[in-house]
């Protein structure tokens, strides 16, 4: 199987890869958002303490 064939998915490439792409975006967002929130929490708490 060539790489082009693999990406074509027998003509269903659009549906298959859109599904996988959207899933990837949603799953990555669910990790990134809490990590950013935690950093923000530490930043804000430390700033408040210095005042």
């Amino acid at each position: 199987m060539s790489l082009a064939e693999f990406f074509a998915m027998g003509g269903y490439g659009f549906y298959v890869w859109t599904s996988y792409g959207l899933t990837l975006i949603v799953l990555v967002a669910n990790i990134v958002i809490p990590v950013m929130e935690r950093r923000q929490f530490f930043r804000q708490s430390l700033k408040q303490k210095r005042k």
């Binding site: 998915m9 027998g10 003509g11 269903y12 549906y15 298959v16 599904s19 899933t23």
Partner: peptide
């Protein structure tokens, strides 16, 4: 269903 069924692995 050809290759379209491969959506099953996340769906």
């Amino acid at each position: 269903q050809g290759d379209s069924y491969r959506i099953i692995y996340i769906h």
